[in-house]
């Protein structure tokens, strides 16, 4: 009887060990869902049982579609679309609030990013199938319409009023705002999640496997699944939320007559900004701010003003230039791991 008990115990122990080993991989069990919104792919990994994850995902997509219906310049139902076509339109409080937030952030960033660049971006056509380089005259004319001071958001009467020829293009902020909505959908539940939307990332809650979220930074010189470095972001508690956005000249560009034009236009010159930078990745506490900051930092370049902006938002960033050099702001230095030795740190002293 003793031998039998021993053998039985041994078998059970083996099974238990194997189960434990298998369960160590358990931490990563998430439900992943993908949807199509605002012309991009939205992927959510929700660390919840499938039923709850489905519900949450539904709420996320509802929120994102709600943002699309309100502020997208390409959605025929949105007040922004209507305003762009008729010069003005009625808008509900939500839309005006969001546009107001955008304007406020852009003012802090000295108008380096600007939602009123609609006429300009339409001219270049980066979002269409046929982008082209406009003539100087066309650009100048479009530039006349750009300017936050020319936009009127009337909260009292609930309307958007554009100046002559002015158009709104919230494209630089849309994904970030959508992720802010995703956060609202998520924070009513207790499940952690990672939401990726057109290159922007929302991290919510505490990661299940280990202490940190790992986010790869896209390698500007390779394909869309390649990263040159990884950021490890460690939440202090379960209520952690972090947003990452990247602006890069490697996407949405076209070549005409041997010259390559990237899609990040300077609201001052009307042309793609000339810079040594190829990408800027910003990590911030809000979706709108991370989106706005990544574009503004890219346009403004790596300098004191840019670094001051980041500090004022409590945000951090990684800058990469065309010589495969990178600069990391202080807050991220300990979180940064290089995966590719062909990159080297910049000499720049902020």
């Amino acid at each position: 009887m003793k031998k039998q008990t021993l053998r039985r115990a041994a078998a059970l122990c083996c099974a238990a060990l194997l189960l434990a080993g298998a369960c160590s991989g358990c931490g990563r069990s998430f439900t992943e869902r993908t949807a199509f919104a605002m012309g991009s792919v939205l992927t959510a990994r929700i660390y919840a049982p499938e039923e709850q994850a489905e519900k949450l995902f539904g709420r996320i997509t509802d929120g994102v579609n709600g943002v699309d219906r309100r502020i997208s310049a390409t959605n025929p139902d949105s007040p922004v679309y209507a305003a762009n076509h008729t010069g003005s339109s009625n808008a509900d409080a939500y839309t005006l609030n969001k546009l107001g937030d955008i304007v406020m952030v852009c003012n802090i960033l000295n108008g380096t990013v600007d939602p009123t660049v609609g006429a300009l971006t339409e001219l270049w056509g980066f979002s269409s199938d046929t982008p082209r380089k406009p003539t100087d005259g066309e650009i100048q004319a479009a530039l006349e319409t750009v300017g936050l001071e020319k936009l009127l958001l009337d909260d009292v009467n609930g309307s958007i009023i554009l100046s002559e020829g002015q158009k709104l293009d919230p494209g630089a902020f849309g994904k970030g705002i959508a992720l802010d909505e995703a956060y609202l959908a998520l924070h009513t539940a207790t499940y952690s999640a990672v939401v990726t939307f057109g290159g922007s990332v929302l991290l919510f809650g505490a990661p299940k496997s280990g202490k940190s979220w790992t986010v790869g930074i896209r390698d500007p010189f390779k394909g869309e699944n390649d990263s040159f470095a990884t950021l490890s972001l460690t939440p202090d508690d379960d209520n952690y939320v972090g947003y990452l956005s990247t602006s890069g000249s490697y996407e949405k560009n076209f070549t005409e007559n041997g010259v390559t034009y990237h899609h990040i236009l300077s609201p001052e010159t009307g042309y793609p900004v000339e810079t040594d930078l190829v990408s800027v990745t910003v990590c911030a506490g809000g979706g709108l701010s991370s989106d706005a900051l990544s574009t503004a930092c890219f346009i403004n370049g790596l300098n004191e003003t840019t670094l001051r902006w980041l500090k004022s938002f409590g945000a951090e960033a990684v800058f990469v230039n065309k010589d495969k050099q990178y600069y990391i702001t202080d807050g991220l230095k300990d979180c940064f791991t290089l995966n590719d030795d062909s990159f080297s740190p910049m000499d720049h002293e902020g």
């Binding site: 990672v194 990726t196 290159g199 790992t214 790869g216 896209r218 869309e224």
Partner: peptide, 8 residues
């Protein structure tokens, strides 16, 4: 085993 997300 990749990172939790890829930005960019």
């Amino acid at each position: 085993r990749g990172p939790d997300a890829l930005t960019g």
